[in-house]
């Protein structure tokens, strides 16, 4: 049972801006659903529904053994938080298997990052905890970040969430949305996605970003570089809405129920379509990587392409001008 003190201490209350944006999102979704009742009925009755077959996990959760080392601290950014139990036996066992307390902090964080990025496949499912995610092998970006953060915290590395509302590259979002007309309509109406997250870890005196949301194959499907720990997704395929970035110790309260109602009750067929779109993207990316001669060769090529397109003059922001007079 959560106590008010814990809610405050662990930053479980969503900030006002997030509440407002989510309410707005819900309102516009309700409106779309009401305006598309016919379409929903047709979708419910249609013979050919979207059937999503969840890929099986490609890993085995290691067994927990007594005496495995893990961080028992109750300090901010090191303790368990909502949906992120970093002291669960499964997490401790996996952290140990990935080299916790044997590798340097940065090397371990890299291993945790790669695990969450590659092994947990993106799937739109209602929000749940890290152990469920590990068992399932799939989850949303929030599930994936929680795995990354839980593993880091278990290894004694401070880790937190970064949330923002965003727009995405069209070719990044559209393949999945094309399979889910109602969700696409929702996105078109909103003009942006309500929530995405990245993880951040504190190593060597600085916060380092890590976006585990995108599997290498999905990145390859649109010729993005295979991003690594320390590389922000912002500016590459995601574009935060100005003023919406927030950093928190925990996923806030109040996201599970709406995600459950939305995905399981309101638009399950659309969600299955979205998930199928993700699998299609992964398959497309696999082919591209293969044709490029493997992931390393592909990544090099993608980075070269990007570097070329990003060549830009550098504006010196601090250079004073005697023609600009600042008045108090």
């Amino acid at each position: 049972m959560l106590t008010p003190w814990e809610i405050k201490k662990k930053e479980y209350l969503p900030p006002l801006l997030m509440i407002k944006m989510n309410l707005l999102g819900m309102l516009s979704l309700v409106k779309i659903l009401l305006l598309n009742l016919g379409a929903i009925r047709v979708a419910k009755n249609q013979e050919k529904k979207n059937i999503y077959i969840r890929p099986k996990p490609t890993y085995k959760i290691p067994d927990y053994e007594q005496g495995m080392k893990y961080c028992k601290s109750d300090e901010k950014y090191l303790r368990p938080t909502l949906y992120c139990n970093c002291q669960a036996p499964e997490i401790i066992a996996l952290a140990n298997q990935l080299g916790a307390y044997k590798k340097s902090e940065y090397e371990f964080a890299q291993a945790a990052f790669e695990f969450a990025k590659r092994k947990i496949i993106l799937e739109f499912v209602p929000l749940d905890g890290v152990v469920e995610t590990l068992r399932r092998g799939t989850g949303t970006c929030l599930h994936k970040i929680s795995i990354f953060i839980a593993l880091c915290r278990a290894a004694g590395i401070q880790a937190r969430y970064k949330f923002f509302a965003l727009t995405m590259l069209d070719e990044w979002a559209q393949p999945a949305l094309n399979n889910a007309p109602l969700m696409k309509k929702w996105y078109d109406v909103m003009g942006f996605f309500l929530l995405h997250g990245e993880g951040e870890i504190y190593v060597d005196g600085k916060w380092i970003p890590g976006d585990v949301g995108a599997e290498p194959e999905r990145q390859a499907s649109v010729w993005l570089p295979v991003t690594k720990l320390g590389e922000d997704s912002i500016g590459i395929w995601l574009f935060p809405i100005p003023g919406t970035i927030i950093q928190r110790e925990s996923i806030p309260l109040g996201l599970r129920l709406p995600s459950k109602v939305l995905m399981n009750r309101l638009v399950p067929n659309s969600v299955a379509g979205l998930n199928n779109g993700i699998i299609e993207q992964i398959e497309k990316g696999k082919k591209i990587i293969k044709e490029a001669g493997g992931e390393k060769a592909y990544d090099l090529l993608a980075r070269q392409k990007r570097a070329k397109s990003m060549s830009m003059p550098k504006a010196s922001l601090v250079e004073k001008s005697d023609k600009i007079i600042f008045e108090e």
Binding site: E319, S321, K323
Partner: peptide
Amino acid sequence: RDFALWLSNIITGELPTIKISG
């Protein structure tokens, strides 16, 4: 204020004197 400096930095040639308030 940095936005004002950025604008002044990217302009070609002579700028008029510009007073930025606030």
